[in-house]
Design a protein around this nucleic acid. Structure first.
Lengths: 255, 255
DNA sequence: CTCTATTCTCGTACGTCGTACGAGAATAGA
DNA sequence: TCTATTCTCGTACGACGTACGAGAATAGAG
């Protein structure tokens, strides 16, 4: 089997299997169409670009200026292609996003074999994920939609499963641990990034402080008033993350 | 002080304090402008609609058809207003979203006082939040952006802080527990919803199964192959949630 | 009452988005 | 050389968020 890591062509027309009803839990991209495409088509005009290059450009853009500037027009301009040319490499924008997520997951490659202490290994994995998401701040938001694991994500998953081997958990449980851990890290980092953004804007931070102070001052929120008046020493995001992560993982057992 | 729970007017023009630079961590709505507006303006034409009604319509829409159908045009149509009339009640769409989030948080009102067993209380709170998010499946996605707590959110926060009183944690730590717990629940439910959406589409579920089977079959992912071949008994989302939640909360201590 | 300042309503219009369509360019095998 | 195939991309469409400003409704002043 070949996981289509290399350039491969995906004509937009071909991907009409899933009608995508637009309901709350609308379902996204067909994984077989996306990741299992053979690299055969060696006829017709030779491609001028590559899925890799396009995806990389989109990632660079998102890293530098945020997910919202990743538009088909902008990505095309960055790559030097016509807008509609992108659709030869990804059937739609959602798929491009999926490609971006898996693309950056390539950075998560771990070479060290599991140490045998699966709790410690899991913590390392989580810290890796956190650093990864901080490097690509658009990731937590992009992960709220369901993603089909691409080759890079699968490689990482493979590593986590190996880490979990000593637990003796069954397959479904191991996969669940992976999903929950990722969701936990994404949730934390998403919050961490938003918090940092507020702090970076002094006007905004001040406005928020004044607002909360006003709320606390009117007597209807005594617990909040006390919490704000006795803040304790400020907590670094790193420390908070480690704290909660340790709680979560140390609590896991293998029953 | 009055938290503007009732109808209040917010002319779009007035909210130009924060330029909103569009950077990755762009900062949203001014809380003082949004939640602390006095209800004075008793002159000029009387409003034909209300912030409440508009927000409620938007929520109903999101619940029924998903966040992506919540457009200014659609909401206006639902309410029977002209599109631009909405801008008399919320300065922009992002603010409307913020209003929606706080609106549904009104359902989270808890009347029972804390029992004294803060771990049990916290678990109850988390289950409440999960049920809440399942009722409004757009919430996990909407919560990835930073929100300024509105009156309903503050009421709920107040309750959680009361629950945490016996822990003796300092203010910052309590607030952190609240944020982390919410992020955890949002992460879990987001995943749960997406998973359910895939399962609801048999074609899609089958395609995904075939894809993973193909990946597992080629030998390069032995751990995945084994996990898929020895799945164990299927886990209900409810059980998984409870499991991880208990790990997290039982691990919390008051040092 | 009339006048005026204020507030809300909403039709029109602009720029941007994702992307359907299809004409043309490039290439591989017959 | 011809033909089938594949890629490129200009044009165009409908939907989006929302700026603008003309008109309608209302409250207080005279």
């Amino acid at each position: 089997m070949n996981l289509a890591r290399t350039t491969s062509t995906t004509k937009g027309k071909e991907c009409e299997a899933v009608p995508s009803d637009g309901k709350p839990g609308a379902v996204g991209v067909d994984p077989e169409q996306l990741w299992l495409r053979p690299t055969e088509p060696r006829r017709g005009r030779r491609p001028s670009f590559s899925r890799e290059a396009i995806t990389a450009a989109a990632v660079t853009l998102a890293d530098a200026e945020g997910l919202e500037v990743v538009t088909m027009r902008r990505v095309a301009a960055e790559v030097g292609a016509g807008v509609m040319s992108l659709y030869s490499y990804a059937p739609d924008k959602e798929t491009l996003l999926e490609l971006m997520v898996d693309h950056v997951s390539g950075e998560l490659t771990v070479t060290d074999p599991p140490s045998g202490d699966w709790r410690a290994d899991l913590k390392t994995v989580a810290h890796l994920q956190r650093a990864h998401m901080l490097r690509h701040p658009w990731l937590p938001a992009a992960l709220t939609t369901r993603r089909v694991p691409g080759p890079n994500t699968l490689a990482f998953l493979e590593h986590v499963l190996a880490v979990l081997r000593p637990t003796g958990l069954d397959g479904a449980a191991k996969l669940e641990v992976f999903a929950q851990l990722t969701a936990f890290v994404a949730g934390h980092v998403g919050h961490e990034i938003a918090q940092a953004a507020v702090s970076r804007s002094p006007d905004r931070a001040a406005a928020e402080g004044r607002y909360l102070a006003a709320v606390a001052a009117d007597g209807s929120h005594p617990e909040l008033a006390e919490a704000l008046s006795a803040p304790g020493r400020p907590l670094t995001p790193e420390a908070t993350f480690t704290r909660f992560l340790n709680r979560l993982i140390d609590g896991l057992d293998t029953d």
